[in-house]
């Protein structure tokens, strides 16, 4: 019962977002400045290109993780957390 309630909350939140997106999209407020699709299932590219897409996205995510995790580790080394006084 509790899980059902929580699920309904999540669905309601998603419906609110979808409704807002629908209103904005229908009113032509978004999309005018965004270009068309450059991929999907159109012609061009092949199996290798498709695998390349996965590798590219994995690379972007890995780079972000390395930057954020490495950056915060470096920051901790430069400015270590204050030790509790005895």
């Amino acid at each position: 019962m509790r899980t059902l309630g929580r699920t309904l909350v999540i669905i309601l939140a998603a419906l609110l977002v979808a409704g807002a997106a629908y209103a904005l999209g229908s009113a032509g407020l978004i999309g005018a400045t965004t270009g068309g699709m450059h991929g999907g299932h159109g012609p061009g590219g092949g199996e290798a290109f498709a695998v390349g897409e996965i590798v590219k996205n994995l690379g972007i995510i890995a780079a972000i993780v390395a930057l954020v995790v490495g950056g915060s580790a470096l920051a901790k080394r430069i400015r270590p957390a204050p030790q509790p006084s005895l």
């Binding site: 999209g25 032509g28 978004i30 999309g31 965004t34 270009g35 068309g36 699709m37 991929g39 999907g40």
Partner: peptide, 9 residues
Amino acid sequence: GGVWKALHS
């Protein structure tokens, strides 16, 4: 619609 495709992308 083109808007939905663009927004999806």
